[in-house]
Design a protein around this nucleic acid. Structure first.
Length: 693
DNA sequence: GTAGGGTTAG
């Protein structure tokens, strides 16, 4: 251990004999210039080591300079030497220099030295308090910083801007909203409310605490918000899920003529991805180039990710091909972009050619396979991953569990469970919920319950409850689901997702009364009926053959997206109201809503019920020709059903023999059945032969 | 001379 601040100071105070020595200008001057030479060549320890060659004090500015250099170099031993020289040879060291020493100790990570020097100082000023409060605040000791702040006030020192900034920093670290509001009031009282830094800090805290209205109010009152202030407000909107507002504020920066930081560009671009605002993203791209960010690695990576997430893979790749763009992060963005747009094959090709990958890259690829239900590929990839890299984290485990659930492979799920147990991922809520979901989807409700009580009982959240509910609902245990819902309300507020699960549970067992009760509960408790919930309601009412109620919910509000239209269309299908389906399809188009593959499933079903064979064929053709939707397996199944049921045997034969893929077993069975019923030998023989193959 | 934000990918 070196000499601590306090002990040197004590020696100084007890033994003042050598303090009366006169200074020697020539010695001091010579050593100063030697020290400066060392500093110029970057030799801080050497410079400090010759301090004691002079038994006289140096100019104060030299000490200040040395403390600053020690801080940036984290050179604790040198701080001690400089302080030692200062207090040994200056009769009364100026307070500001000792404050610098406190700051230097703190920057070097030694709160002990900082505190000791503070305690032993013969005299303190407000700056000394500030230095120590900042020291505690910046080293992650917010409680101590608050304590010192109170002590400072009691000792009769008035806090200034610096004090408030430090204390607010601690408030932000522990989200102390209530304390922040009080300090906000005091700041106002002292007239510091025009201060940009304090204003920005308050915006930061209110934003972090989720009260964006207050945050925005303060932001609007800052007279000249600077780049950091703008960065904070954009970032906070983004974090609160208000991507649109974040982008609006970003463009406001240009009106205010403040040059954005590269991080602000990055935040704004993430905001664009979050709401797939490609148009705005491209404008930001243009602005970035105009303002000279075309070689900024952070901005380039963010641009690549924005284009990839918005489905513009060509643009993303074009930027990636620029020399400054190629790195692990942007490469991972490309993999993720291809994977999550369904082009898993391209993603894999790119993945295989990457010079380096990390766990995020691997997860991005795996997420693509799971998202598109490519279980076989996912499984092979998992084996490759386990054999290639030791890096598996909670995201990987969550995805692997998703694969187990998708394949209903509970044996593999149990093995993963063992791995989770052995590698101490048990306390991770993300993994815990994944386990719960896996057992639930595999129908192992008992195991799900064990996970529930023994693994996540301490840390369960709303997602855990929803997962448990949906595993009971999926297996027709509706009454139990309702009971669990009652328990849930004791510790979590249900969300829209909860109700969608419950309504689906009711629909599955045709529990109209309970469905109505949930509907009423939501209305009484002021839940927003978003399109997911309205879809679940339409679905429940139509499955329970209360089509009038379904229509009522459907017509309630004007905003209807494709999902809600689909719910209504499938609801009509359930009630064998084929003509209504086709009517809906027309109205939907009038509203400007583009039909998707689910819509066409409903439409083709409707044509089957009503016997509109020719119309059904026209709709099927229009999918590719007019709407750009590639027919899926289920649409081919619908057409086979349509022709089979209405005995259009020539059309059936032509259709089934010209599909772009081999007919599946259920398809051939259906064809064979139709041939038997309508006496079509040739096609029947063909189907039987294909079945035997 | 002391004070604030942020690190893009799953």
């Amino acid at each position: 251990m070196g000499v601590t601040a306090g002990s040197v100071l004590n020696r100084l105070l007890c033994d003042k004999g050598h303090l009366t020595k006169p200074s020697n200008p020539t010695t001091v001057k010579a050593i100063t210039s030697k020290i400066l030479t060392y500093l110029d060549s970057g030799h801080l320890p050497k410079a400090v080591s010759i301090l004691f060659a002079s038994p006289f004090p140096f100019q104060f500015s030299l000490y200040a300079h040395l403390f600053q250099l020690c801080s940036s170099n984290r050179a604790i031993l040198e701080v001690r030497k400089v302080e030692s020289h200062l207090v040994t040879f200056s009769p009364i060291p100026p307070i500001f220099l000792l404050n610098r020493a406190i700051e230097a100790y703190a920057k070097c990570g030694s709160l002990g030295d900082a505190r000791e020097l503070f305690e032993e100082m013969p005299q303190r000023d407000g700056g000394s308090w500030n230095a120590l409060i900042t020291a505690y605040s910046q080293t992650g000791n917010p409680e101590d910083a608050f304590g010192l702040f109170i002590k400072m006030n009691r000792s009769g020192f008035l806090p200034n801007e610096i004090t408030f900034a430090s204390v607010l920093g601690s408030c932000a670290a522990v989200l102390a909203l209530w304390l922040s509001r009080q300090i906000h009031a005091v700041i106002f009282k002292y007239g510091f409310n025009g201060n940009v830094i304090l204003g920005s800090s308050l915006v930061d805290i209110y934003g972090k605490c989720g009260v964006m209205r207050d945050a925005r109010g303060i932001f609007d009152e800052i007279q000249n918000p600077n780049d950091i202030s703008w960065n904070i407000i954009v970032r906070r909107y983004l974090e609160m899920g208000e991507g649109k507002e974040a982008i609006i504020m970003f463009f406001q920066m240009f009106v205010a003529a403040v040059r954005p930081l590269n991080f602000t560009f990055s935040n704004a671009l993430v905001a664009c991805s979050s709401i797939t605002a490609l148009e705005e993203g491209m404008q930001i791209h243009g602005a970035a180039i105009k303002m000279g960010f075309e070689n900024d690695e952070v901005v380039l990576s963010s641009l690549i990710d924005m284009y990839a997430k918005c489905g513009e893979l060509e643009n993303a790749c074009a930027i990636f091909d620029q020399p400054k763009s190629k790195n692990l992060i942007s490469g991972t963005s490309i993999v993720s972009g291809y994977a999550m747009s369904g082009q898993t094959w391209k993603a894999r090709e790119f993945f295989n050619e990457m010079p380096e990958r990390n766990v995020v890259t691997w997860n991005a690829m795996l997420a693509g396979y799971t998202h598109y239900f490519q279980w076989e590929e996912a499984l092979n990839f998992i084996f490759l991953m386990v054999n290639t890299t030791k890096n598996i984290d909670q995201v990987t485990l969550g995805l692997i569990l998703k694969v187990c659930a998708g394949l209903s492979d509970v044996e593999m799920g149990k093995q993963v469970h063992g791995f989770i147990y052995r590698h101490d991922f048990c306390s991770n809520i993300f993994v815990g919920n994944g386990l719960l979901d896996m057992y639930g989807k595999c129908g192992y409700l008992k195991s799900a319950k064990t996970v529930w009580f023994h693994q996540i009982s301490q840390c369960r959240d709303r997602i855990s409850w929803n997962t448990l509910l949906s595993s009971y609902a999926r297996h027709g245990r509706s009454e139990l689901a309702m009971k669990i819902f009652c328990e849930m309300q004791l510790e979590e507020t249900p969300d829209e997702y909860t109700f969608a699960i419950l309504l689906a549970a009711c629909a599955n067992i045709f529990a109209l009364e309970q469905g109505k009760q949930i509907h009423g509960f939501m209305i009484r408790n002021g839940y927003t009926m978003d399109s997911v919930v309205r879809g679940a309601l339409v679905d429940m009412y139509s499955k329970c053959h209360s089509i009038e109620y379904a229509i009522m919910v459907f017509k309630e509000r004007a905003s209807r997206d494709v999902i809600l239209w689909n719910s209504m269309i499938l609801g009509c299908c359930h009630n064998y109201k084929g003509r209504e389906v086709l009517k809906c399809f027309g109205l939907m188009e009038d509203e400007g809503i583009k039909p998707d593959h689910v819509t066409f499933r409903g439409v083709l079903h409707a044509c089957t019920y009503e016997g509109f064979v020719e119309l059904g064929r026209q709709y099927f053709d229009s999918m590719t020709n007019e709407y750009g939707i590639i027919p899926r397996l289920e649409h081919y199944e619908c057409m086979i059903e349509l022709y089979s049921q209405w005995a259009y045997m020539d059309e059936l034969e032509n259709f089934v023999k010209n599909m772009p893929f081999d007919p599946t077993v259920p398809m051939l069975t259906r064809v064979l059945d139709a041939c038997r019923r309508h006496g079509c030998l040739r096609l029947g023989q063909w189907a039987a032969q294909r079945l035997n193959e």
